[in-house]
């Protein structure tokens, strides 16, 4: 199981309706990208982090683990703003780029925390069947659900194949590494299509008519949660704009 998906199944907000969590996370995400980065990014980032670590009950270690790779992109992607090219000297440090790079890093970090607020509290298995109500064709949600179910089996297969290859010194040299990786690619292709074929046969034996509808657990949308989210979003917007005027 992927670490973020495991957290999504074990956090305190797991029983909540996905729409509640989507409203809160995507509302905050919109604030993070639409409000002025200073002081919008710190405000949104702190609110998202508090919700994630507090009521949702996600451990700081798990949040940090999920943030490491995207933060690497943000750091590397902010560096070009610190230099200017053209003129003399051709490449030089650009002092005006410092606030821009900080704003960019702040906005991206706040937005990432908002994304995690949704991803770490809502399993995809809860979200995908409900996308039909947003107008996504059933064929697409069913293909997505099949992908979701199959990918964990394939990831497990790759792990097993990799361990077996490593035990046979399959990554000793460049040549053996590439041969082993090709073996992994071939193995997941064969297993994916073999599983699809077996599923096809199994469904045919059960009178498959073309629909793969699954039972979706009914959960009521909490009105107090939705109202509290609306109030929180208004407070974030008004608070950020007021703070901006005060700090200007």
């Amino acid at each position: 199981m992927l670490p973020l998906d495991a957290v999504a199944y074990t956090n305190r907000w797991r029983p909540r309706h996905p729409a509640e969590k989507a409203f809160l996370s995507l509302g905050l995400l919109t604030c993070a990208v639409a409000l002025p980065p200073w002081p919008g990014a710190p405000v949104v980032g702190v609110v998202a982090a508090m919700l994630l670590l507090g009521p949702a009950g996600v451990a700081p270690r798990q949040v940090w683990r999920a943030m490491k790779v995207p933060l690497g992109f943000v750091t590397v992607g902010s560096l070009p703003l610190l230099v200017a090219v053209g003129g003399t000297p051709w490449i030089r440090f650009e002092p005006t780029g410092v606030p821009l790079a900080l704003q960019l890093a702040g906005r991206a970090t706040a937005a990432l925390l908002c994304l995690l607020l949704f991803a770490a509290t809502t399993p995809l298995a809860d979200t995908l069947p409900r996308l039909n109500r947003l107008g996504v064709p059933p064929a697409i949600t069913e293909v997505s659900a099949l992908m979701y179910r199959m990918l964990f089996l394939l990831l497990e297969s790759v792990r097993t194949v990799r361990e077996a290859q490593a035990s046979r010194l399959g990554f000793r040299t460049w040549a053996t590494s590439y041969r082993s990786l090709a073996g992994q690619g071939g193995a997941i292709f064969v297993r994916a299509f073999e599983r699809a074929r077996r599923m096809e046969e199994g469904l045919a034996l059960r009178g498959y008519t073309g629909s793969l509808r699954v039972e979706v657990e009914q959960r009521p949308v909490s009105q107090p949660f939705v109202v509290a989210t609306g109030v929180l979003l208004v407070v974030v917007v008004v608070g950020t704009l007021t703070l901006r005027r005060v700090l200007a």
């Binding site: 099949l146 179910r149 199959m150 990918l151 690619g185």
Partner: peptide
Amino acid sequence: VRTDPDSKLLLGAAGAFSFVLSALKIP
């Protein structure tokens, strides 16, 4: 999918394959 309902499974396999392929580590 409408003309061939079985292709849904093939597409699911293709999508899962694409996801897992992008997770391989190449030196």
